[in-house]
Design a protein around this nucleic acid. Structure first.
Lengths: 190, 190
DNA sequence: AACTTTCTTGAGTGATCGCTCAAGTATATA
DNA sequence: TATATACTTGAGCGATCACTCAAGAAAGTT
């Protein structure tokens, strides 16, 4: 008996993710979302409940995509090579609406207000860090890097470097590819 | 004949800087500023003209303070040691309202909107990068690091690492001191 | 075709945004 | 003490914020 919605939910979340990623949380108004998703307020709230709820879905999609890209690299190139390639891949992705990491942007914007989305962003960062850690551990099993290192420490530093790289890549006056290459190089010296 | 303002302008700018630094541009309302500066709207606009104008002053103060701290370190400890100490000093500063860099936060928040303050933040980042570059050059003259390296490339990477460190330091679950120590260590291997 | 159920629409809600300005107050000069 | 010159006050401006809801449109079932 019912009527189907005339949209693809996942498409909408992707478009919202791109807007939020580029403009940030406060910088994205409902007017912006209505324009991009081609939805009127009523449909929007029926479908997602609130701006924050959609933002949470957008961050989740962002993280899952990142994890998928990383594990695809690991499958095709091996653990160490994936970690070496990832920084360059991430900042050279032409389809991405921004170079900087959506999770770190969100965390920075909302952390001081104790906004739940800041904690959410942090949780996603922890998830990513765990993935990096697993790849470092795998690289050690592969004999690609020294087994003496603590994979968690390597992941912590790697994620920090990646965040810095991606902020720098947003600036037009910075040669981010060079930084990405240096990050990759430093992994060879482990 | 006139009447003097009953405030110290530099104090106000410092308090505004701390608010903006912690909460960001959109996250800091005029209500917040009025409360922190103990000023009513009329006095505020007579003194600063606009929220954005005060933000610009706040960023300038932020940058000058950073430059002063860095050059003080260089004077007391030498160029290389200053660069090695700076990351730890910056994230352990208890008086600071936030760990993350105000310039990168501002740039990230406002860049997508082509907001003038984003360009302003970028200019300050360039100034800081130049300071880092000068210190690397000095460290080479001192014979503290290999003269083969390009000081500008070293500064570029250093600034990127510093930005990542400072974002990470905002997270309670990350051992930022360990990252700072690794950044310092890597300067010894140059 | 009639009915039921869901989705869509868009005018409009109260709250908050950055900001203005006329009126009042304080202070230095004459 | 009178006057001139700021500085301070706070009610309130128009704009925008996230969001609501009553009414209408569309589609599956009978």
């Amino acid at each position: 008996m019912p009527r189907k919605p005339n949209y693809e939910r996942e498409d909408l979340i992707e478009r919202a993710r791109d807007l939020f990623w580029k403009r940030g949380w406060a910088g994205t108004s409902l007017k912006d979302l209505e324009a991009s998703l081609q939805m009127r307020p009523g449909s929007f709230y029926a479908a997602f409940g609130s701006k924050d709820a959609l933002f949470a879905l957008a961050m989740e999609k962002y993280t899952l995509d990142g994890q998928a890209r990383l594990s695809a690299l690991a499958r095709s190139h091996g653990a160490l090579e994936a970690l070496k390639l990832f920084p360059a891949v991430v900042i050279e992705n032409e389809k991405a609406p921004a170079k900087a990491c959506m999770l770190s942007k969100t965390f920075l914007e909302l952390h001081a207000h104790n906004h739940p989305l800041a904690q959410e962003a942090n949780l996603h960062l922890i998830r990513m860090e765990a993935d990096f850690s697993n790849l470092f551990r795998q690289a050690q099993k592969d004999g690609a890097i020294d087994g003496q290192h603590d994979p968690k420490a390597l992941a912590r530093r790697y994620q920090s470097d990646l965040i810095g790289l991606r902020v720098s890549a947003e600036r037009i006056d910075v040669d981010a590819k060079a930084i990405a290459a240096e990050i990759a190089n430093s992994l060879d010296r482990l």
